[in-house]
Amino acid sequence: MKKVFLTLLAASFITVGFQKANAQTPYNTALGLGIDLGDGQTLVGPQIKHSFGGANAGNAQVLFGDNHVLIGADYSYNRQFPGTNGLGWYVGVGPQLSFVDRGNDDDTYFAIRPAAGLEYKIPAAPLAFHFDWKPWWNLSNNTNFEAARFSLGFKFTLN
């Protein structure tokens, strides 16, 4: 039942994202540092976000922690708040693979991570920041849902 729900949720986000919209990200590509924090371990590593036109964007990251590597990619639907200069919101979802080294017992986890957040691009500088709620919905190795997960990002924007 969870897999059916996740498939429908992902399909909904993709369908909404492919609708024609005006440019909604104030840059084309950004490179930076991602921080994943909350309940459990804090992970840090590089990330890249790229706008595919309109409100559609993709984000990829490789994050590291103690004996832990997370690889993920997300689709996001992005919109700017009317009357603001550089402040926007986004919702998205994407798959994540997590590799945990426990010495003799290594584990690999597959998760779906929805995200809802805010992003601010400084108008006079090539810098952007984001904060989002990004829960961890593990679908393997004793499935579980961790609601108290968040992400921060600090990016250098390229046009």
Rank of each mutant, 00 (worst) to 15 (best):
D36N: 10
L118C: 09
M1T: 09
N22Y: 01
L6D: 10
F13Y: 14
G86N: 09
A147P: 00
G58R: 03
F18N: 14
D107M: 12
L127W: 03
T157R: 04
A147E: 07
Q41H: 10
Y75F: 14
D101H: 08
W133D: 13
K49H: 08
G92F: 00
Q80H: 05
P82H: 15
A11K: 03
F99W: 04
Q61E: 07
A30P: 01
A147V: 05
G65F: 07
I112R: 04
G83K: 12
Q61T: 01
N78V: 08
S140K: 07
F81G: 13
G117S: 05
Q47D: 07
D101Q: 14
S12T: 14
D107K: 13
Y75G: 12
G17C: 04
A128Q: 05
K155R: 14
T25H: 12
V69L: 11
F145H: 07
K155Y: 06
V62P: 00
T25C: 02
A116H: 06
G92H: 04
Y90G: 04
D39H: 05
T7W: 06
G45I: 01
G103C: 10
G32P: 00
D74E: 15
Y75L: 14
S140I: 00
I35M: 13
A116K: 13
A147C: 04
G88M: 05
N144E: 15
